[in-house]
C-alpha cells in the first residue's frame, strides 16, 4: 500500500454496521477500507473500423502512481482512456481493477473512476450545482449544499454554481468536468487533455488535483502538451 488515503475513516465517522454517509455503497466497501487499488492492462488492442489503433498494450498501476499517455494525433490516447473507463470494449486483451487483490466486476469498476475528457458533456440546461447534485443522487451520495459548494470552490467555480452550464465559458465547463469527476472521491482518475482551455488558475487546479490524487489513487493523463508530461511517473507512448 502506498501512502495513506485522504478519506474519511468509517470507524470514526459511522457506527459499526452502517454505511458511511459520505461514501455509501461501493466506495465504503472498497476505497475507504484503505486497501490498495490496482489497475492491470493485459495485451489490450483497439481498432477503428479496419484500422488497428494500438495493440498489445500491457501495464500495471497501483495507488500513488501517475501514468502519462502520449502519442501523435490519432494514436489512440483518448481511446485508451475510454477503454480504462469502461466506455468502450477492447478489441483484444483485458482491463482489470482490483481492490485489495480482489478483481472487480467491470460494472462496479466504473464507480471507481473519475473521468475528465473533451467529449465528456454535462447537461447544458442545468446549472453547475444542479449537474453535480444530479450526479451525486444517481451515485447515491448524500451531499448537502455545503459539500457541493466546497467542491465548486475546489475547482474554482465558487459563486458560479447557480448559472446554467450553457452560459459557461469552455474553461468553466472544463472545471465543472473536474467537479463531476471528483464528486465520489474516485481512486482512479482518468484525465484526457487535462489542461484543455484552462487558464493559469485552472492549470493550478489540475496540478492540485493530481497532487492530491497521487497520495493514494491512480492517475492516468492523456496529453500531447509537453508541459503536462511532468505530471507522470510513468510514460506510455502510443503509435511508436
Amino acid at each position: 500500500m502506498s501512502g495513506q488515503p485522504a478519506l474519511c475513516n468509517p470507524t470514526s465517522r459511522t457506527p459499526p454496521g452502517r454505511v458511511c454517509e459520505h461514501h455509501p455503497g461501493f466506495q465504503f466497501l472498497c476505497y475507504n477500507r484503505q486497501v490498495e487499488t490496482r489497475l492491470t492492462v493485459e495485451g489490450v488492442a483497439a481498432t477503428y473500423g479496419a484500422r488497428r489503433v494500438f495493440a498489445d498494450v500491457s501495464l500495471e498501476l497501483s495507488g500513488g502512481e501517475v501514468l502519462v499517455v502520449s502519442g501523435a494525433n490519432g494514436s489512440g490516447k483518448s481511446t485508451f482512456l475510454r477503454l480504462l473507463a469502461g466506455l468502450q470494449r477492447p478489441e483484444a486483451g483485458q482491463i482489470v481493477y482490483r481492490c485489495g487483490g480482489q478483481a472487480l466486476d467491470p460494472r462496479d469498476a466504473a464507480r471507481l473512476i473519475g473521468w475528465v475528457a473533451p467529449d465528456l458533456m454535462l447537461y447544458r440546461e442545468l446549472t453547475g450545482r444542479e449537474n453535480l447534485r444530479f450526479f451525486a443522487e444517481v451515485r447515491r451520495l448524500h451531499l448537502d449544499d455545503g459539500a457541493i459548494e466546497a467542491l465548486l470552490e475546489r475547482v474554482g467555480l465558487a459563486g458560479r454554481g447557480d448559472e446554467r452550464l450553457a452560459t459557461y465559458s469552455s474553461g468553466m465547463a472544463q472545471r465543472l468536468r473536474y467537479a463531476y469527476a471528483l464528486l465520489h472521491h474516485p481512486p482512479v482518475l482518468l484525465l484526457d487533455e487535462p489542461g484543455l482551455t484552462l487558464d493559469e488558475r485552472g492549470t493550478a487546479v489540475v496540478e492540485r488535483v493530481i497532487a492530491e490524487q497521487r497520495r493514494s489513487g491512480i492517475v492516468v493523463v492523456a496529453t500531447n502538451d509537453p508541459r503536462e508530461l511532468r505530471y507522470g511517473d510513468l510514460l506510455l507512448r502510443l503509435g511508436t
Binding site: A85, L87, I113, D119, M121, Y123, F135, V138
Partner: peptide, 12 residues
C-alpha cells in the same frame, strides 16, 4: 448532446 457517457459512468 453527448451526455450519455457521463450518465453511463454514474448511474445504474
Amino acid at each position: 448532446t453527448r451526455t450519455m457517457a457521463a450518465l453511463r459512468l454514474a448511474a445504474p
